[in-house]
Computed example of a mutant assay.
Amino acid sequence: MKSTPFTDTIRVTVSHLDDMKHVNNVVYLQWVQDIAKKHWESKTSENTRSTYVWVVLNHYIEYHYPAVYNDELLMETWIENHKGAKSERHTKITLAKTGQLILTAKTTWCLLEKKRLKPVRITEEISNLFS
């Protein structure tokens, strides 16, 4: 089950840079999490978001090419598959102008019931929102 990619863009600012004048690794990680949240919020109702919450189990990130000040970046994320309470989400970041690959990431998320903070199986309703 690969979902349709959700996309967003971001322009690199000075605050995103490290000492080498490249986007800091921690900033990329934040962007990976931010676009996942935006995707979730774009597909779900307030009621669904008040019932469930996601937590990260792990991230695997590959840095392919450095982004620098004023680069416009295209971010894409999609659900590759899910089983039980776990979901495998992929993220790709490229230079908007050229398509140069900047970063790829794979994140394993776990769905929790928000009140009890206990893992819960991904429902068919939630799965259908992303397929």
Rank of each mutant, 00 (worst) to 15 (best):
V53T: 14
T51G: 03
V32G: 00
S42A: 09
Y69D: 01
H64I: 00
A36Y: 02
W54G: 03
I10Q: 07
V56S: 06
Y52S: 14
T51L: 15
N24H: 14
L57A: 12
E80T: 11
N70D: 11
I61D: 12
M20L: 14
W54K: 10
A36S: 09
L74K: 06
V68S: 07
V26H: 03
E76Q: 13
Y65V: 08
V56E: 03
N58S: 12
L57N: 12
V56Y: 02
K43L: 07
W78H: 02
S50Q: 15
T51A: 15
V27G: 05
Y65H: 15
S15D: 13
H39A: 04
Y63H: 14
W78N: 00
L29V: 14
T44E: 00
Y52T: 13
S42K: 05
Y63G: 07
Y28C: 04
E76N: 06
R49D: 05
N47V: 14
V14D: 11
V27D: 01
V53R: 15
E46W: 06
E46G: 01
N25K: 08
S15R: 13
M20A: 14
V14S: 07
A67K: 04
D18M: 13
D18V: 12
V32L: 02
D19C: 07
A67Y: 07
N25M: 12
L73W: 00
N47E: 15
W54Q: 11
Y52G: 13
E80R: 15
S42W: 00
M75H: 07
T13D: 10
S50M: 12
A36D: 03
A67G: 13
Q30P: 03
L74W: 05
T13L: 14
E72C: 06
I61H: 11
Y60C: 11
A36I: 01
S42L: 02
R11H: 03
D71H: 06
M75S: 08
Y69R: 03
I35K: 03
Y60T: 14
T51F: 10
E46P: 09
Y60A: 11
H59W: 08
I35E: 04
V32Q: 06
T77Q: 09
T51V: 11
I10G: 00
I10V: 15
E80Q: 15
E72G: 04
Y69S: 00
V14L: 10
N58V: 04
E62N: 15
V12K: 02
A36P: 00
Y28M: 00
T48H: 04
M75C: 10
Q30T: 10
L17K: 10
E41L: 14
N70G: 01
A67F: 05
I10K: 08
I10E: 02
H16K: 02
L29Y: 03
Y60H: 15
Y28W: 09
D18A: 09
E41W: 04
H39V: 08
L17Y: 11
H16C: 13
S50C: 12
W40F: 06
N47H: 12
E76H: 04
I61F: 09
